[in-house]
Simulated scan of single mutants.
Amino acid sequence: MKMKLVFGVLLFSGLALKVNAQNTIPKDIQPLLQKYTCTACHTVDKRLVGPSFRDIRKKNYKPEKIVDLIYAPQPKNWPGYPPMAPMKNVPKPEALKIARWITTLK
């Protein structure tokens, strides 16, 4: 009985860590999201002002398409959300890094 309880706690802890890891923004991405104010409107898994990064991932855009949409948002792609301002101040290599991360989300 005690062994099953310990195993259950360890298993649950492992699952909790896995879930948290999926919600964690990587250390190299977080500063970019903050610098370019992405996190003012987007979170990993919940609607804020704009869609979550996971919801963006569900559209199956290629990273290059996400970059295009960062520079020239298309509100018709996201009915029910306020239009996003074009973020032309984000350098392309950094926008691509963010976009590639978005495409890795489950």
Rank of each mutant, 00 (worst) to 15 (best):
M1A: 02
M3R: 04
K4A: 09
L5Q: 09
L5C: 06
V6S: 11
G8K: 02
G8V: 00
V9C: 04
L10I: 12
L11V: 15
L11D: 03
L11C: 14
F12P: 00
F12W: 05
S13F: 01
G14Y: 11
L15H: 02
A16D: 09
V19S: 01
N20S: 13
A21G: 04
A21V: 07
Q22Y: 05
Q22S: 02
D28M: 09
I29G: 07
Q30F: 15
Q30M: 11
L32T: 07
L33A: 05
Q34K: 11
Q34A: 13
K35N: 13
Y36K: 10
T37R: 07
C38N: 04
A40V: 13
H42C: 07
T43K: 14
T43P: 12
V44K: 00
V44G: 04
D45W: 01
K46S: 06
K46E: 05
R47E: 06
R47T: 09
L48I: 06
V49H: 03
G50A: 13
G50R: 13
F53E: 10
R54D: 03
D55H: 01
D55N: 03
D55K: 03
I56P: 01
I56N: 10
I56V: 09
K58P: 05
K59W: 11
K59P: 13
N60F: 03
K62Y: 00
K62G: 00
P63T: 09
P63I: 02
P63Y: 06
E64L: 02
I66E: 01
I66L: 06
D68V: 05
I70K: 08
I70G: 11
I70E: 10
A72I: 11
P73H: 15
P73K: 08
Q74W: 12
P75I: 12
P75H: 08
P75Y: 14
K76R: 04
K76F: 00
N77F: 14
N77A: 01
W78D: 11
Y81H: 01
P82R: 10
P82K: 13
P82S: 11
A85Y: 07
A85L: 08
P86N: 12
M87T: 08
M87R: 12
M87E: 12
K88W: 06
K88Y: 00
N89D: 14
V90W: 09
P91L: 11
P91C: 05
K92E: 11
P93N: 12
E94R: 03
L96A: 02
I98E: 14
I98M: 14
R100T: 13
R100W: 11
W101S: 07
I102G: 08
I102Q: 08
T104R: 08
K106V: 05
